[in-house]
């Protein structure tokens, strides 16, 4: 019982980060119809900037994190303006491949910046934990503060994002753009600006994901960037254009992966080591068999 509880808490903590990254993919996808393979690069740049500010320069963590998110959002906006805007109206494959090219550039940049060093980000949670259920000698069920912190940060950020998207003028304009660009244009919405804004948001959220990934009491290195791709099954599971789906998908994937890493070695060892890495994909495939557009994805309207 105690193991179940700890596992679920850890799963939710990781799931929150998956959800955040999946949302960052969704926002960019809804605006420009691109699966942005450059997200890993943006993610690790977020970690790097936070680390430089918080550890090397002694800036308080939260200030450093906000600055890092803004810096990466600006980079992301720049990428959209330079490399994605010219691709509007071009085949989806080509645009996705452009983001792959950007990914390569950003990744090498990150490797150069890290320069073979492992980095920390001086987050406030470190390895502190709360004991929820006291056992006989040791703590039976404990909650790491960084898991709680991740869940809290993601909940606040995504909550604000949801309100902003559904209430504010700009948020509504963004949603209108993602529904129908031409109609939005006809309503006087500056579609180009909406593209920039979406990419800035997506990049900023990816950077935040990178910061939260690094908040595990340990160190990060440049190739941790590839963590962003782990969110892909979460994205598809929820439905590629649904924010709600991304959140649900992220949490589901976090739980599935935590549960399978705890119980699969005991109950199904024949599935091999590290099965938790593929369990999310298995769940995703099963869901897609029943619902081809994920849990909350919009069905493509098919016309002749």
């Amino acid at each position: 019982m105690a193991t179940v509880a700890s596992t679920l808490l850890a799963g939710l903590g990781d799931g929150a980060v998956y959800a955040l990254i999946a949302v960052s993919f969704v926002i960019i996808f809804r605006a420009t119809g691109v699966l942005n393979f450059a997200q890993p690069g943006l993610l690790i740049l977020g970690t790097y900037v936070t680390s430089v500010l918080a550890v090397d320069r002694g800036v308080p963590f939260w200030v450093a994190a906000v600055i890092a998110v803004l810096v990466v959002a600006a980079i992301s906006m720049g990428i959209e303006r330079v490399a994605i805007r010219p691709m509007i109206g071009r085949p989806v494959f080509s645009t996705a491949l452009v983001t792959v090219g950007i990914f390569i550039v950003l990744l090498i940049l990150a490797f150069r910046l890290f320069a073979a060093r492992a980095r920390t980000i001086a987050d406030p949670w470190q390895l502190e934990q709360w004991c929820l259920v006291q056992g006989e000698t040791l703590c039976a069920v404990s909650l790491y503060q960084h898991h709680a912190g991740k869940i809290a940060v993601v909940a606040v950020v995504l909550g604000l994002l949801g309100v902003w998207l559904s209430r504010s003028r700009v948020g509504l304009a963004m949603r209108a753009t993602s529904l129908d660009q031409e109609a939005a244009l006809a309503q006087g919405i500056n579609v180009g600006r909406m593209f920039s804004l979406s990419w800035a948001l997506g990049g900023g959220l990816a950077a935040l994901g990178g910061i939260l990934l690094a908040a595990n009491g340990s160190v990060v290195q440049a190739n941790d960037a590839l963590f962003a791709l782990v969110a892909l099954p979460a994205l598809i599971l929820g439905g590629i254009d649904s924010l709600r789906g991304a959140v649900v998908g992220g949490l589901v994937i976090g739980l599935v992966s935590a549960l399978s890493s705890t119980y699969q070695p005991i109950h199904a060892p024949w599935l091999g080591p590290n099965f938790e890495n593929v369990a999310p994909y298995l769940v995703m495939i099963l869901v897609l068999l029943i619902r081809p557009y994920g849990l909350f994805g919009t069905k493509e309207v098919q016309r002749l």
Partner: peptide, 8 residues
């Protein structure tokens, strides 16, 4: 970690 997310 880049694959598993963490070592819990």
């Amino acid at each position: 970690n880049q694959v598993t997310g963490g070592q819990d």
